[in-house]
């Protein structure tokens, strides 16, 4: 991703200049827009180098990442990749929990490995986690599959009411790619699932069902024409957004964009997910409204996660704090409470 920007007038095409595999090890998909990506990258590198200088200065101070307006602003503008692990660990409380519990990770890993059912569920998905990433391939020189296996097994034992839920494999995979450290990946996974996100992954998946309904309400409020369209064609929100929530946009949005979203997720909490979803829907409102039928609606929702808007991660991240308008914590809490009560009553 951080490959040097080519200068204008270079021979060859963008396709020849951009590496086929990105810095995280992912192969670029078929139909990847190399030309636009190169163009974006040359602009984004300027942003990245400016942010890198600012962050270096900030991190020289000891109070660096305590909660403040300044830190929030810095995080919204993106954490440089080299500081990402460190900052995520600090702002999410993962660092503190790791330091408070020395040896804990190792002990839950040992115990988890004795749970055949858990290990089985994890193993089923190992080969199916990022087959398009060279670092996760079974034959890779330093294959990350054993690391992924360990973190998932340890977590499944640590949080036995959740155990292993599909989707956690992808999230953990990203955490490993960013931290390059098994134990840190574990504590960040714990921060996300145990502290930041609602109960998306528990056996009843109530948190997921609630948030899908909350999104439905927010769309009704902020983008009513789309809400009407969904109702008209009988498209349940779960059909188009369950993966957005469960995978935290992995494999839905570009890698860099996902990481920028996660920067804010670790610092500001799960509200960010709604901001991203609402921004996508609002930006593409006219496009979505072209849908004539049920499958059309589904296709549109797939289309809107691709293209230039989401590739331009820096602009996109600015948009998510403007486009959806105000989204207070109180509103989210109220809506979540309402739907949780309704859903539990239905069960």
């Amino acid at each position: 991703m951080m490959s040097s920007a080519p200068t204008a007038g270079d021979n060859g095409t963008a396709r020849d200049r951009i590496p086929r595999i990105d810095v995280y090890g992912f192969e670029r998909p078929d139909g990847f827009d190399y030309k636009f990506y190169e163009d974006f990258q040359s602009r984004y590198l300027v942003v990245l180098s400016r942010r890198a200088i600012k962050w270096s200065k900030l991190l020289q101070k000891s109070t660096a990442v305590e909660k403040s307006i300044k830190v929030k602003r810095y995080i919204r503008k993106g954490i440089p990749n080299e500081h990402r692990c460190h900052v995520w660990m600090l702002v999410s409380g993962a660092q503190a929990r790791m330091e408070k519990n020395p040896g804990y990770y190792h002990s839950v890993l040992v115990e988890g490995k004795k749970n055949a059912k858990l290990v089985d569920a994890v193993v089923t998905d190992l080969n199916r986690t990022f087959p398009d990433n060279v670092k996760f391939r079974r034959n890779a020189s330093q294959c990350l599959q054993p690391t992924l296996h360990n973190v998932l097994v340890a977590y499944g034992h640590h949080n036995s009411s959740v155990g292993y839920c599909q989707g956690m494999n992808f999230i953990t995979g990203y955490l490993i790619l960013v931290t390059k450290d098994e134990e840190k990946a574990f504590w960040l996974l714990d921060a996300l699932l145990g502290h930041i996100l609602p109960d998306y992954y528990s056996p009843a998946m109530i948190g997921l069902k609630v948030d899908q309904e909350v999104l439905g309400d927010l769309v009704k409020l902020k983008i009513p024409a789309v809400a009407d369209l969904m109702e008209k064609h009988g498209v349940m929100w779960t059909l188009v957004v369950s993966r957005w929530f469960i995978c935290l946009f992995i494999d839905i949005l570009p890698v860099e964009t996902v990481l920028r979203i996660w920067d804010c997720l670790f610092y500001e909490g799960s509200k960010i997910i709604f901001r991203v979803a609402l921004t996508l829907i609002k930006q593409y409102q006219a496009f979505i409204l072209e849908a004539q039928n049920f499958p059309d609606v589904c296709d549109k929702f797939k289309e809107i996660t691709k293209g230039q808007l989401v590739t331009e991660c820096h602009h996109f991240m600015q948009k998510i704090f403007v486009d959806p308008g105000s989204l207070s914590r109180t509103t989210i809490i109220k809506l979540r409470d309402k739907h949780r009560t309704q859903l539990l009553a239905q069960e």
Binding site: Q166, G167, A204, M205, L239, C247, D299
Partner: peptide, 23 residues
């Protein structure tokens, strides 16, 4: 192939893990 999470509507692919059934 990668494990199915939620529902993939292009080919109506959904997750088979038990807990996803309720979704």
């Amino acid at each position: 192939f990668i494990s199915t999470v939620g529902i993939d509507f292009r080919i109506w692919d959904t997750a088979g893990q038990e807990r996803f059934r309720s979704v």
